[in-house]
Amino acid sequence: MTEQAYLVLLALTDRPRHGYAIVQEVLALSGGDVRLGAGTLYGLLDRLGSAGLIEDAGEEVVDGRLRRYYRQTPQGGAAAASETARLAALTRRARRVLGGPALGEA
């Protein structure tokens, strides 16, 4: 799973969000590092959707703009959890390699 796909999946963890809200949530989750464009966003949504990790959650019209909401599937939740565990294990190993408590584990 790419970092961007992981971030989109995370952004849909707590509640369904529409496209622009996903972009903002990803920006916040990444500490301002990852600013998704519309093309990238829909590429990710397409791929996560066809992998069964996210699904449509209805649509509404706000200010004349159509907003379609997306939500995590149970499968998506499991994928996010296992990716998080993988990254956490990686981080632990990285800290060991780099000298442990100096990075703030203790």
């Binding site: 464009g37 519309a38 093309g39």
Partner: peptide
């Protein structure tokens, strides 16, 4: 329709056309 909404939300308020980076991304 929803992509149009996202593009509008992402663009500057008075933008008259899609920016070069966004256009390239869409392409």
């Amino acid at each position: 329709e929803e992509a149009l909404g996202v593009l509008t939300d992402l663009a500057e308020p008075e933008a008259r056309r899609v920016g070069v980076r966004a256009a390239l991304g869409l392409l």
